[in-house]
Nucleic acid binder design. Structure first.
Lengths: 111, 111
DNA sequence: GTATTTGTTCTAAATTTTAAAACTAATATC
DNA sequence: GATATTAGTTTTAAAATTTAGAACAAATAC
């Protein structure tokens, strides 16, 4: 449909929200809380890569830290294109949710 | 992710919005305008069926009308479950979009 | 009858999602 | 130093979803 999928939108928004801390595992933690459900690592890393390949995200690799297991992280940030895509999906979303009639339903034959 | 996909959400919202006029082709027309892009018939009918099978929608078949080509239409309406799923996705959406920091970005190493 | 219109069904290809195993590289502990 | 543990990314294959469009059906129009 040429509009961001839900997962793509949520990942882009995570990157936005997390600012300098937007790397794979962190995004996964953040999103798992947001949707109140544990996400697999693949559920985050796979779309992250795709979003980068398509130019919605760019990335840079950090230096390792001196914490236990503190490997280099791949940080992401939104590109212009990423911001634009988010704006677009937000507009569609707002339009879709606006002007909904009451659910009272005189038009419903089965009630 | 156990949350409605974008297409599923848009279709459920179409059904809500269109009230008594929510049948396949009409939904397609409505959504095509909403997303400003022609949708194929399959892009609507396939998820419509799935949403019904999963209990988000129910349907009834109209009588044919006396217009040219006026065949019986399959009308849809939201079930309780459908309304609940929409509420859930709206909550996630609102949370995802709230509290976003400025995009000014002091944290961005490449600027 | 034949054409045209409105409508739904079907289906196969493409894309996206998902889970989980594999891999990598750091510190900790013995 | 060997082994364990932790934090992190990559890979992969199955499942699910999306999509286009052909096929089919049933109505009116000519």
């Amino acid at each position: 449909m040429n509009i961001l999928s839900r997962m793509e939108e949520l990942i882009l928004l995570s990157v936005w929200k997390l600012q300098g801390e937007a790397y794979g595992l962190q995004i996964r933690t953040y999103l798992s809380e947001l949707v109140e459900q544990e996400l697999s690592v693949g559920a985050v890393y796979v779309p992250l890569k795709r979003l980068k390949k398509r130019g919605y995200l760019s990335s840079w690799d950090s230096d390792p830290t001196d914490e236990r297991g503190g490997r280099t992280k791949r940080f992401y940030k939104l590109t212009e294109k990423g911001v634009t895509a988010l704006q677009q999906v937000k507009t569609v979303q707002e339009n879709a949710w606006s002007g909904l009639p009451d659910l009272g339903l005189g038009w419903n034959p089965s009630i």
